[in-house]
């Protein structure tokens, strides 16, 4: 009952060459992983507010990339594919778990090493803004994506992203200002 489809080896690569491909692809994946995993995990951490959760979600995204590495590596931008999968996983995860409520609750707890100084403020401020706004700000300023790239990833119009960014930045600024004032008192 073994399926009888043709091998997926690329044209022209047969015999020993085909046997070598997995090792080559494997090493290539390792390089890809090393170059991207921390950056993407940092972004997801900023989005979810939970470091361990972010690590799990990004690991899952890379698992999916590895499972179809022959295809993904041919993409114009494999990093974008993994980032998108990771963000989708994170978004689904947050929504299933009650969206912002749990996120905010986590921010009030200090079970793990937290960023210090201004980073704490930024983390808390991010936690307090809307999901779309938070995502847009992180993708723009942490991932360095353009508005067009964010729009493509999220499947929305560029105008929508600009709106999210404008409102997200305003909300962030407001929350950071409030925190500053509270700390000065």
């Amino acid at each position: 009952m073994t399926p009888t489809r043709d091998s997926s080896a690329p044209p022209g690569e047969g015999g020993a060459a085909a046997q070598l491909l997995p090792m080559r692809a494997s090493l290539e994946f390792d390089d890809f992983y090393a170059a991207n995993v921390r950056v993407i995990t940092g972004q997801i951490y900023a989005y979810t507010g939970d470091r361990a959760e972010a690590e799990d979600l990004v690991a899952e995204a890379f698992c999916r990339a590895l499972a179809r590495w022959r295809k993904v590596r041919e993409y114009e931008n494999p990093t974008a594919w993994v980032r998108r999968v990771a963000w989708n996983l994170a978004t689904s995860h947050l929504r299933r778990r009650g969206v912002v409520q749990r996120f905010l609750n986590r921010q009030r707890e200090t079970h793990e090493k937290a960023p210090d100084g201004d980073r704490v403020d930024l983390m808390r401020a991010l936690a307090g803004i809307g999901e779309h706004h938070r995502k847009a700000v992180i993708l723009r300023y942490m991932a360095g994506l353009t508005v067009a790239e964010i729009a493509e990833q999220e499947g929305v119009a560029e105008a929508t992203v600009r709106s999210w960014l404008t409102r997200g930045k305003a909300a962030l600024a407001g929350r950071l200002t409030v925190q500053d004032e509270m700390e000065q008192r």
Binding site: Y33, A59, C63, D118
Partner: peptide, 28 residues
């Protein structure tokens, strides 16, 4: 924003502790 997030991004990258790629291979 770019300045603030550049610092924040760097800190976040250092804080996370991703699994080794061998773990990814093993899981798959």
């Amino acid at each position: 924003f770019e300045e603030a997030f550049a610092d924040f991004a760097h800190a976040a990258e250092l804080m996370v502790d991703p699994v080794d790629s061998a773990v990814i291979h093993g899981r798959v």
